[in-house]
Write a protein that binds this DNA or RNA. Sequence first.
DNA 1: TTCCAGGCAATAC
DNA 2: GTATTGCATGGA
Length: 227
Amino acid sequence: MKDKLNLIYKKLLEEYGFQGWWPLLSLHKNGINPTKTGSMNGYHPKDYSFPRNKNEQFEIIIGTVLTQNTSWTSVEKSLFNLKKLNSISPEKILKISLDEFKNAIKPSGYYNQKAERLKLLAKWFIDREEIPTRDELLKLKGVGPETADSILLYAYKIPSFVIDTYTKRTLIKLKLIDETFSYNEIKKFFEDNLELDFKIFQEFHALLVEHAKRLKSGEKDFLLIFK
DNA sequence: TTCCAGGCAATAC
DNA sequence: GTATTGCATGGA
């Protein structure tokens, strides 16, 4: 199974190249125009130095919450709105009013709950110096398994595999799992069969998402590249 | 117009 | 532990 999974990773990498997740606003080109830049901006292929400071780390964390059940282009709009308010830092988010904050993140949907939870998350982050554990993250309101794993993997570079709807769908299509597999079972499947390297975990997860997205747009046969 | 998007918490069984 | 439902905007 190890060989099989590594072969899938290799094929995806050959097909799409390095993905450079998690996207950061400071790496956007063309200034402030998220609708035009779309979701192709902010990535940093083969550069694993991010996040380089606490603000970038925090930007990733709020992104993981904002993107819950929401497309990344919508999250970009919210992040740009926050940037205009000069508010992508935990201190600023705590400082602006709840209404102003809600209005800024409205494009991402569920803005009432996300605003309250992000304020709590900001408070938590300010007091948190060390790397959090997964259980600690799961106790935070608004942080479920996928968000916790995304925070660990992309904000803290801890090899904790992220399972999202795309990942699960891809594995089902490849017949490596079936619909009954739970989040933790799928996570274990990856972590038991891969080298525990945060770079591989980041790329593999991002590649699975990219592949599933292209399938959805009807670009090519889903299983073609694996043959 | 309907459906889905890089889910989560509350509730019910 | 597993199944269901509300949360909400924006694009296809």
